[in-house]
């Protein structure tokens, strides 16, 4: 394993923030895995840390394929992580809205540029992503449906062995993300969503680590045996049904992520926050699997409380 500082930035009164890349094997830049770009992506960093620990052992046992290399960057924003802030400490900008970056630009543009220069030429890229909504997801992997469609990118969604592979039509605000720009540069890029962001789930961490290892095996980058994981259902993200709250108050959930529900099943109640009575009941609009569940106790009107993946699209 080689350990290198791939980008460094100084602060007035803090030690330098060194973004470290851990490289296994040598030769072709085969796969890069990026963890936390935001200061609260603790699960994403922990997944990379465990992946590094595993790859160390695999490398010692000669399991990295000849002529292939893997780089893992567990954290690119520990200045924010060390003060419990999601975005950049000074100006609250998001590194993951700054790609491909600009070396003469603002601080987070420079960080994005420094990072991207080191990782843009990998054949495969996996970002441990978090979502802007508060809640718990079923683990899944996602690709952007950019103009540079590549059949292999979509077909390889199943190589992770996660229950779902999603294809997303990018919105304008997606165009400055790492995943989007990786793909524009010709990399087969994936965003891997684990269950949590600020919480490290033991099982979910292992699930994500295994998903990446399975992908590396499928691509011939590591030589190792691992069970094939789950059958992956690939679908367009827009087919997922959003279930919104139409009342505001205290959320009392009756179902949780991963549960199967039938049309009409009670998903949750909204309780009056001052008087305790039920002011709203939300029922499932379809037969399907609970893919996302909001995890805050208070809900605002229009909160996206559940996402359901329907069993069928008809």
């Amino acid at each position: 394993m080689d350990k290198n500082v791939i980008y460094s930035i100084k602060s007035l009164y803090r030690e330098s923030m060194n973004i470290i890349g851990y490289t296994f094997g040598s030769g072709e830049h085969s796969c890069c895995v990026v963890g936390a770009l935001r200061g609260n992506e603790i699960q994403q960093m922990a997944i990379c840390a465990q992946l590094i620990d595993t790859l160390k052992r695999l490398e010692e046992n000669g399991c990295i394929a000849n002529g292939k290399s893997i780089m893992i960057i567990p954290c690119a924003n520990h200045y924010s992580m060390n003060i419990g802030k999601r975005f950049w400490p000074l100006d609250n900008t998001d590194i993951n809205r700054m790609f491909p970056g600009y070396d003469q630009g603002e601080t987070t543009q420079r960080i994005a540029d420094g990072l991207f220069k080191s990782i843009k030429d990998y054949v495969y890229g996996v970002q441990m992503a978090s979502f802007y909504r508060e809640g718990e997801f079923l683990p899944h992997v996602k690709v952007m449906d950019t103009d540079c469609k590549n059949r292999e990118t979509y077909e390889s969604l199943t190589d992770f062995g996660l229950p779902y592979g999603l294809i997303r039509i990018p919105q304008p605000y997606d165009t400055a993300t790492l995943n989007y720009n990786w793909q524009i540069w010709g990399c087969h890029a994936y965003s891997l969503f684990s269950n949590y962001t600020e919480h490290i789930g033991r099982q979910s961490t292992q699930t994500a680590v295994n998903a990446v290892l399975r992908f590396l095996i499928a691509k011939g980058i590591i030589k190792w045996a691992l069970h094939r994981g789950m059958h992956t259902r690939v679908l367009n993200e827009e087919l997922i049904i959003n279930v919104q709250a139409r009342n505001a108050g205290i959320l009392k959930k009756h179902v949780y992520v991963g549960e199967e529900v039938s049309e009409g099943d009670l998903l949750c109640e909204i309780i009056h926050p001052l008087e305790g009575n039920t002011i709203g009941r939300i029922k499932s609009p379809t037969d399907g699997t609970v893919f996302f569940a909001y995890n805050k106790q208070l809900v605002t009107e229009y909160s996206d409380v559940f996402n359901i993946v329907p069993f069928s699209y008809t």
Partner: peptide, 11 residues
Amino acid sequence: VAALPVAENFI
């Protein structure tokens, strides 16, 4: 206009 969780509307 939208309802906020505790006795207030967003307007």
